[in-house]
Amino acid sequence: MDCAEIRQHLSEYLDNEAAPVLQRQIKEHLAACPQCRRQLAELHELSQALTALSEPLPDGLSARLADCLTQQRREQVSPRRTPLHKKALFKVASIAACLLLCLGAAGLAFEPGQDGAPTPDNSLPELAALDADSNGEKQLAPENKDIGLYGGSESADASIGAAPSDSDAANVAEDSEGTTFGEADAADTEDEPGENSAARSPVPFILLAAACLLVIFLLVWLLLQRKKDSKI
């Protein structure tokens, strides 16, 4: 390598960043070439002068940074904590809404007679078929259904009239309204459909209404939260 080539690589040689082979070649050349040595010395001097240009931090910068970061921390802490806290509550509320929805829907689905109520006449054949599946003797069911749908108390009377002997079953049905759904199902299988429906029918609707309320509540919550976030 001649001097011109060597001088192109003196900068990286100075920083010890040249490839090992090149580093060695330059070293050998420098040992024999005073002009290139002087070039290197100039580069070295420049490098030292440049390093000396580093200035100390101005007064107050550290304090200013500390203030700024403390403020940032405070701003970050509050919004970060609330979502976490809310998430737990939010999850519980969402799960509750889902459960209520499922229970309500299941309630409607598993009560063949009464829940078809809004359109009783149209659904009769199907319902009758369903009844026949679940219970052998349900030819009476359609008549009872109508009564059950149009008035809670009347339907109860009617059901008693239709099956006076099953007073125990009626009691079970009444209990089921106040308590859980599983019991209601149990009552359903034992019993005449008219009776059960009359006692139970409000439950699914209450559940569904509660679920709807919860969902509305959750939506409002989400909206409020989003507004708050956008403000920040």
Binding site: H9, E12, D15, E42, L43, L46
Partner: peptide
Amino acid sequence: VKSRLARARAALVEKIT
């Protein structure tokens, strides 16, 4: 990086000289 550093240094050395 290598070429820019080499050129910048050479230019500065030239100015100083």
